[in-house]
Simulated assay, not measured.
Amino acid sequence: MQFSPAQIRAATWLGMGLLAWLLLAALSPVLMPFVLAAVLAYALHPWVERMAARRVPRWLGAGLAITVLMLVMLAVALLIVPVVSKQVPLLREQVPALLEHLNLWLTPLAARFGLDLQIDVNLVRDTLRKLVSGHESELIDGLLSSLRIGGSAVLAIVGNFTLMPIVAYYLLLDWDGMVGRVKALVPPRWLEPTQRFLDETDDVLGQYLRGQLLVMGILAVFYTVALALCGLKLALPIGVFTGLAVFVPYLGFGLGLVLALLAALLQFQSLTAVALVGAVYAIGQVVESMYLTPRLLGERIGLHPIAVIFALLAFGHLLGFVGVLIALPASAVLLVALRRLQTLYVGSDLYQDGK
């Protein structure tokens, strides 16, 4: 059987694509800090270019951009520390008292239905004493063992997050040169359509980043104000943290919810107040999922709300935590590619012959 040159070229590109996919799958654990560093470098590159236009040396601009980003991330992390350090030790003292009040209400109610229902407050008190008083290391060891994470793996995770800003810094230093070298690999006849594709992708990703920042700001204000109206003393740190942490879908919201419920439980010692705080987070999640993310992110990058949800689930399944982080920007790039393929298909003989 004789193959045409076009078929040979198509088979060659298909084989190269398959080989690249297998290589990426094999090296995915090693590539994680480099992928995240590339995303950071892409997001920070416009800032470095603006500073360079004002005659700030590129090495200094890249260093300032990375430093500011790391300080922001550190500030967000430090928002959690006062909450955890001040609230968790109070669990041992206040939760048993709250459960005793719950027993006073629950036991007579259960007795009406012929049930002997009562919470073992002493057991809860002993469990909390073990968890909070000097046994934290045993708890962490057990958690790491249950997750099958060894010390070397934990060290690798810390090393990856240390490596990420370093790689991003060097990418920022040589961004233009690196992009030029990649473009030099593109065949000359494909250079113009490739440049148009990259320009359109850059525009879509820029809209995504602006939309994401807008969603984070709106939610930070909403959670702070709503929790303050509930009377929560830690409304500001918890609300700001929750709003900024939604950059990581589901995980950021979940952590903020746990912190808010814990703070409400220890401050009010009332199930009604805890339920009110939970209602705030339920409303916030509905608004974010049904309106903010689809409207301010999905519409900005041209993704249907269902496509946004599918992208988060699909990329999270394929690439884990990193996949959740890059789901929407990667989907924006795929959307641009699909638009191009649709244009080619509509103009092809395969489509035209059907008319």
Rank of each mutant, 00 (worst) to 15 (best):
Q207G: 06
E93I: 01
V167G: 05
G151D: 11
L296V: 07
V182S: 06
P305A: 05
F222Y: 15
A184K: 08
N122Q: 13
H45I: 02
L117P: 01
V248R: 01
A111I: 03
G211S: 05
S270G: 09
H304M: 07
I66H: 04
V76R: 07
M16H: 01
S28Q: 13
L19M: 11
V182H: 04
L60A: 14
L191V: 07
D202W: 03
L303F: 02
L60N: 03
L232G: 10
L24K: 00
P46W: 01
L292F: 12
V132H: 04
L257F: 09
V225H: 04
E192S: 11
D176A: 09
Q94R: 15
K233N: 10
L229I: 14
L341E: 12
L79K: 04
L266T: 11
D120W: 01
L334N: 03
E49G: 00
L292C: 06
G211H: 02
M32Y: 01
L71S: 12
D141K: 03
L40E: 08
A260M: 07
S146E: 14
A282R: 04
I80R: 03
A156G: 06
L219C: 09
V81I: 10
Y291K: 00
S28G: 08
D176Q: 12
M16N: 06
N160I: 00
L191T: 10
E192F: 07
L24Q: 04
V277T: 07
A275W: 09
L27W: 13
P187I: 08
L259M: 15
V35I: 14
M73K: 08
V182N: 02
L128V: 07
A307I: 04
E192Q: 07
V48I: 06
I80W: 00
L205M: 08
P249L: 00
G284S: 10
L313V: 15
L27A: 14
V48Q: 03
L191K: 12
Q118A: 13
V56T: 08
M164Q: 10
L104K: 05
A184H: 09
K233D: 13
P29M: 10
A282C: 10
R300K: 15
M1A: 13
I283A: 15
I8D: 06
L64R: 03
T224Y: 06
Q195D: 14
A11D: 02
S145H: 12
K130V: 09
R58V: 15
T194G: 05
P249A: 06
F310Q: 05
Q342M: 11
G347L: 11
